[in-house]
């Protein structure tokens, strides 16, 4: 069954003078997906989200947002969207309740009770009369989430939504987002540095590095690719790798940017690999089985990219 496309970008590029913040991004997000945007600082994640939210304008390329691809259309589409980009922005002199009420009126959301419901949803009922300037980082983040969730948007654009939250807050917000996605089909695009947390929620991943989309993969595909591998660190990588190919006829390996060697595929006799180093007077620094999770996969992706840059 063909899924409805909520966001589609084509060669989306943003540059500031000679600096390219995002280059030729082709991303597709379908209805009901939770898209995890992963990348280092400066990879282009926030730039991408800001373009969706209308804070900045693309230098080139185009995008479709909730079926709209004109400036006028984006304004209509954004009324069906909730967003937190970078730190939540509110009026410091107004309380949590007043700030939400301000935005409730602005967004034309009927019913004053929506504000109380939103505050309860994000766990801020007791702090509703606290002025924004007096709130902790975690409270501010919850209020930002509340603002994004208010009015039951079809699409949520969240930039580091669990930043500053305590562990129980992270679990609460995760459960809330999952509930919204599963019960109401809300589509989400979430950028986060906390990869372990993202892996609990995302159904799709987009990996960004140095302004480019390096890979897009579904959670299922990632799971399939998750496998045990043998990580070896030696004092003489070149010699060891040469011996791996010649003595053990092993070609299913990767040399990572950090100098470690990953032996992939089925590994029958672990001791042969350690013996290979020892018997040829190569120092063995690390030897152990590891599992590919999101963090490892991300490092692998970025590592590959770094290697490719180095090879040029």
């Amino acid at each position: 069954m063909k899924k409805e496309i909520v966001i589609r970008t084509h060669k989306l590029t943003k540059s500031y003078g000679n600096t390219i913040a995002l280059q030729n991004a082709d991303i597709t997000i379908c209805k009901g997906e939770i898209y995890g945007l992963v990348g280092n600082n400066g990879a282009g994640k926030t730039t991408f989200l800001k373009m969706l939210a209308g804070e900045i304008v693309p230098t080139s390329g185009e995008f479709t947002l909730l079926g709209e691809n004109t400036q006028k259309g984006y304004l209509k589409a954004r009324k069906r969207m909730g967003a937190i980009i970078e730190n939540p922005a509110f009026f410091p002199g107004m309380s949590a309740k007043q700030n939400l009420e301000y935005y409730r009126i602005q967004r034309g959301i009927p019913g004053k009770e929506v504000v109380e419901q939103t505050l309860e949803c994000v766990g801020l009922t007791e702090a509703k009369n606290k002025k924004f300037k007096n709130m902790s980082l975690g409270m501010k983040q919850r209020l930002g989430l509340g603002l994004a969730l208010m009015g039951e948007p079809e699409l949520l654009v969240l930039d580091e939504p669990i930043n500053g939250l305590d562990p129980s807050g992270i679990i609460e917000i995760r459960n809330l987002l999952l509930k919204l996605n599963q019960e109401k089909g809300v589509t989400m695009i979430i950028s986060s540095h906390i990869l372990a947390e993202l892996s609990n929620i995302a159904t799709q991943y987009g990996f960004l590095s140095k302004g480019k989309v390096v890979e897009q993969i579904s959670a299922e595909e990632l799971k399939e690719k998750s496998r045990d591998y043998l990580e070896i660190r030696v004092t003489d990588i070149e010699k060891y790798v040469s011996l791996l190919e010649s003595k053990m006829e092993c070609k299913n390996y990767k040399v990572m940017a950090d100098g470690s060697i990953h032996i992939l595929g089925k590994i029958d006799k672990l001791t042969e690999y350690s013996a290979l180093a020892v018997n040829h007077e190569i120092g063995l620094l690390f030897f152990g089985m590891k599992e590919v999770n999101l963090e490892n996969y991300y490092m692998e992706i970025i590592g590959e990219t770094v290697e490719a840059e180095g090879d040029k």
Binding site: K76, A83, Q106
Partner: peptide
């Protein structure tokens, strides 16, 4: 005007579809 550029609240209006 309320220091909207300083507090970045202006960007919320844009994100909610106001030109």
């Amino acid at each position: 005007f309320g220091d909207e550029f300083k507090y970045r609240t202006f960007s919320n209006a844009t994100a909610f579809g106001y030109s």
